[in-house]
Design a protein around this nucleic acid. Structure first.
Ligand SMILES: [Mn+2]
Ligand SMILES: [Mn+2]
Ligand SMILES: [Mn+2]
Ligand SMILES: [Mn+2]
Lengths: 218, 218
DNA sequence: CTACATTGTTAGATCAGTCTAACAAAATTG
DNA sequence: CAATTTTGTTAGACTGATCTAACAATGTAG
């Protein structure tokens, strides 16, 4: 059974392996906030336990077992976040830190019960998909708000970044998942976008914000 | 901040320090299921951190800070057990193992929210008192069933042992906290007791069971 | 292609938490 | 009280997870 540390490495590896599938030692070190020698020794351990493939001087790759176990940790994390928001009344900006700890609890029934109580949700409070019990993850293809055209009506469905600061910024603007946005105009110079939604008739969103907002065209 | 290991030692120390207040190294070693040298080195650490007082060859004593922090871990444990039973539908025999892990989560709001959602309970699912936010524990003085007399009507209010096996035994007899028992007779030879309750007209409980049942005389 | 920068590895140390073996102090018991 | 048992300590080792310093391989850019 994976230790807390190993579970955290698996999660990072899984998240870094989007698209490229391979992960460099240095990437992993910076993601995990540890030194490269630390990663070097840990990848040897993870390999010994069958979670990844490693060859000297080569980037590492998760094995199918590694991918599955990583997804199951992510499942615990996201179920927890959803439970904290839906059943315990936390704000979406408060739950990540708690889930970072709760995800390491070894008690399948605990998470199954959360799942059940929430009616088997498929996304977490930040719009990210919750892997199923077998570690399968449903890929959702949302558009970034930057890719949308003036005049379009879109619905906020996900985020590419869920830092507390960004979530608090969105709270301050009354933006939450499900909010329908009308794109009023796009500024060619700085790529900012003017939108209207709810009782906000004209809100300007910078490119930095827009690229982090994932939307579904209505 | 206490590590998981330290928190577990504090809890054990607190529980062993009932009455006597002092705890022997060997008691603590057997409680924690580690060797005496391990305890020896750990008590030095705990002393260095201000949680206990230790002198070579003497039993150890928790400091006020040690008692408080121990009680706060026990608070997290018992709030969790109550939450699992009351809000998540677990049986009282399933919750201890999960709480043993959840008690180490460092997130005050998480436990405060549980507390709030349950209406600030004062006992856990096994009848043990839940320490308050300042680590104060309300001592309740129940009677053991062995101390009761024939003819008395008593209510099951607590247990001196909450092992899964014992809880499953009680489940099998339909005995739960709050059950009112009429003591029909006491057997002088083996100290077993015959009781009636709910739709059980005559159930014999061995001394081994009776001494673990804490009751309130009605 | 050589030089320099980047990336990765090795060696060796540290800290927490654990162990066993050997020994020492304290308690018990005849 | 002396012998024996029980309890506690010391020494030394190990594992997991981390670090820094030194070095080696790989990649890049003139
Ligand atoms: Mn998260
Ligand atoms: Mn984590
Ligand atoms: Mn318990
Ligand atoms: Mn515990």
């Amino acid at each position: 059974m994976a230790s807390q540390t190993e579970e955290n490495y698996l999660k990072s590896l899984f998240n870094l392996a989007n698209e490229k599938d391979e992960v460099n030692i240095s990437e992993l070190a910076s993601q995990m906030q540890v030194s490269m020698p630390t990663v070097n020794s840990m990848v040897k351990t993870l390999q010994k336990n069958g979670w990844l493939i490693y060859e000297k001087y080569k980037p590492v790759t998760l094995t199918p077992a590694g991918k599955k176990d990583a997804a199951l940790v992510i499942r615990k994390h996201r179920l927890t976040e959803m439970f904290l928001v839906n059943k315990m009344g936390f704000g979406w900006e408060e739950v990540h830190e708690i889930a970072e700890q709760v995800e390491h609890i070894h008690a399948p029934k605990f998470f199954e019960r959360m799942d059940e109580m929430m009616g088997f949700p498929t996304i977490d409070p930040h719009g990210s998909p919750i892997p199923d019990k077998l570690g399968r993850i449903q890929e959702i293809n949302y558009l970034s708000l930057t890719e949308c055209k003036a005049g379009q009506l879109v619905k906020l469905a996900g985020l590419t970044n869920s830092s507390t600061e960004f979530l608090e910024f969105l709270n301050g603007r009354n933006l939450s998942l499900g909010t329908e946005l009308r794109i009023l105009s796009k500024e060619a110079y700085d790529h900012s976008i003017v939108v209207s939604y709810s009782n906000h008739t004209s809100e300007t969103l910078s490119e930095k914000v827009c690229e982090k907002l994932l939307v579904k065209v209505m």
